[in-house]
Design a protein around this nucleic acid. Structure first.
Lengths: 227, 227
DNA sequence: CGGACCTGTGTGACATTGTCACTGACCGGG
DNA sequence: CCCGGTCAGTGACAATGTCACACAGGTCCG
């Protein structure tokens, strides 16, 4: 469905580029973009797929992950409000294949732009070019920092970081299973269990079925900054 | 120095985009681009630097790597003839900082494009847009596959792959130190030494100071495809 | 020639992480 | 209540990372 007034406003809040661009482009954008909602757990884009539209996320989040043959998986990055799937963008523009899987983590709403418009605006609008390149550049930087994490960081540090990210840095309980943490970080459930047990032993967290209580956020933060 | 006739030809061979584009753009490109040579071992771009020009490589190669606090390092990807440093490109266009270090591995020659022209052509030339997005897309895919390697692949498999890459898949000796392999793969010298000793024991390779002889390329290839 | 010195490699001990096999604890629905 | 599914804990062992140190092959220079 095309954009109503309220959705236009939300889009312009999430994507400041739409406020800074020329009125001509903005009108064109709003006349072509479609509004869509995607329930949690949907497969947005799968390995090797050719993408037909660019999703610009307004609410919810999408996890882009890579899965190994043995079932282990790792999160490459997340697409959150104000973001967009650049891999999709790259694939649209370069015609190449999508090298990972994207799955909505929560109910997600987005503005969808058909592929032909994505390329057309690339020629027509300075703001749109800057927007897309900004996305790609940020994404590349994010994936590179993922490489750094995986290659150099100790697993307890990575678990601590992830817990803090989940809790927004505040104290309290986080609802998450050991398996979910393992999938996020690209390791196995047993390793996460072991590390959480150690953290519990040291009083940094408390453990319950499907939840982790952050007890000493200061210590967790210190741990997460090690090395 | 600006491009002479021979260099123009080399550039068009390495970058087919220059042959497929409009004559107007091609002329513009050749009038603005500069030819440059960079000796092996030069630091092309360092962490956090703002890039002033886009290098399009004609010969030689550039290794882009990330270094950890403890000195370990890993190769993110290589820029080889026909490639260009997209991180540079992204940084130019989005004005962000370069998140890694790029060092020439061998004497490298390249065509340099000043940053203002990079953005100007982005508006003016369809071929240039397709070229840049293609680069970025490929690069993102490469870095993602690096994540996959690091997160999921066994180290002996990765060492075998790297040796085969170095030798172009043929038999014979490769001049490389254990430390160099370790830096390439993001591990430590001791681990590489241990794995090479095992490979030697199994008759897959022979070892000498600063060199590895590939003795059973078939077996190495089989190992490199495991999992 | 004989050291001083540098780079490259080998090795043992130990910590961390990954894998496998199995156990039991919790929770919802019949 | 029992059953089946999800979730977590554990021990054993393999693979990898880290540290400390030994040693071997060169180069340079007195």
């Amino acid at each position: 469905m095309p954009l109503d007034q309220a959705t236009r406003a939300r889009a312009e809040t999430a994507f400041p580029m739409l406020a800074d661009c020329t009125p001509a482009f903005r009108d064109d954008f709003h006349s072509r973009a479609m509004y869509g909602e995607i329930p949690a757990g949907s497969l947005v884009c799968s390995e090797g797929q050719i993408c037909g539209a660019l999703a610009m996320v307004l609410c919810g989040s999408v996890r882009v992950r890579k899965t190994a043959e043995n079932g282990r998986e790792i999160t490459l990055y997340r697409i959150e409000p104000g973001d967009s799937c650049v891999l999709t963008a790259s694939c649209i523009i370069s015609g190449s294949l999508f090298p990972a899987r994207a799955i909505t983590e929560s109910d997600t709403c987005a503005v969808m732009v058909p592929a032909p418009d994505v390329t057309r605006w690339l020629a027509a609008s300075e703001a749109w070019r800057a927007f897309l390149f900004g996305l790609v550049s940020r994404r590349l930087t994010q994936v590179i920092s993922t490489v750094e994490e995986v290659a150099f960081r100790r697993m307890d540090v990575r678990v601590a970081r992830h817990l803090l990210r989940l809790s927004d840095g505040s104290s309290g309980a986080v609802r998450v299973t050991h398996q979910e943490i393992a999938s996020e970080l690209g390791t196995s459930r047993e390793v996460v269990s072991r590390i959480l047990k150690d953290l519990e032993h040291d009083g940094l967290v408390g453990l319950g079925r499907g939840e982790v209580q952050l007890k000493a956020v200061g210590d967790l933060d210190r741990l997460s900054r090690r090395d």
